[in-house]
Amino acid sequence: MSLKILVVEDENDLAELIAYNLKKEGYEALVCLRGADAIKYLEENPPDLLLLDVMLPDYDGFRIAQYVRGKESLKDIPIIFVTARDMEQDKLKGFSLGADDYITKPFSLKELLARVKAVLRRVGKERRQTQFRLGGIHIDLEKKEVKRGEEAIELTPTEFLILSALLENYGKPVSREYLIERVLKRDVYDRTVDVHIKKLREKLGEEGKAIQTVRGFGYKLEI
């Protein structure tokens, strides 16, 4: 059975384009152009994931997210905000309401699909990749092992969590806020994340150069 994704987006052409590409990937996709229609659908036929625009003609997307998280039968549905609002306070508000990811317009469909798959993997709805190669390094997320050949590379639990998040979002920028809110899940300063990244790069040696700084945003992993 295909996983169901509800696309709540008031720009009809964009909504249909997103839905078309989701269907090409094997998902069942339904479009709602208004928040009221989305809430009605959520009540009657809860999806496996909610792609939610913030600026809708009737309901604020944040309000819909708050409704979903407050409803026992809906609270576990993963939410990805899709919006033109890229202010830091908007992103933090989205994550504080329980968003699983936040992507700003304009975006590539390839990036959106990758984020959908990553979120579905994280919540256990889609099979999660656990084996990665990074140059000469092998990473096993299940066993929490990082090795160069037979030699183990010892990472702290925090360093391993950050590396896992970067691997699962390979090629896509990951914000410091995302790492703090959704990966580390505790209150730390942005600078603390930077310190962990610096140590991680050092331990990975030559492959550590694959962790690239995205100025003013965060990091991405790409060789």
Rank of each mutant, 00 (worst) to 15 (best):
K105R: 15
P106H: 13
P106N: 13
P106A: 12
P106M: 15
F107A: 06
F107K: 10
F107L: 09
F107R: 11
S108Y: 11
S108F: 11
S108E: 14
L109S: 06
L109V: 14
K110G: 12
K110M: 14
K110R: 14
E111C: 06
E111F: 09
E111D: 15
L113Q: 07
L113K: 04
L113M: 13
L113P: 06
A114G: 07
A114D: 08
V116N: 00
V116I: 14
V116E: 02
V116T: 09
A118Q: 05
V119I: 09
V119Q: 01
R121A: 07
R121E: 11
R121K: 13
R121M: 11
R121T: 03
V123M: 08
G124W: 04
G124C: 10
G124I: 05
K125N: 11
R127A: 15
R128E: 01
R128T: 01
R128S: 02
Q129K: 15
T130M: 05
Q131H: 13
Q131M: 15
F132V: 05
F132Q: 04
F132Y: 15
F132N: 07
F132S: 06
R133C: 09
R133D: 10
R133G: 08
R133M: 12
L134A: 06
L134Y: 04
G135P: 10
G135R: 01
G136C: 09
G136S: 12
G136A: 09
G136D: 14
I137E: 04
I137Y: 03
I137A: 05
I137L: 12
H138Q: 14
H138S: 15
I139P: 00
I139H: 02
D140V: 06
D140T: 06
D140Q: 11
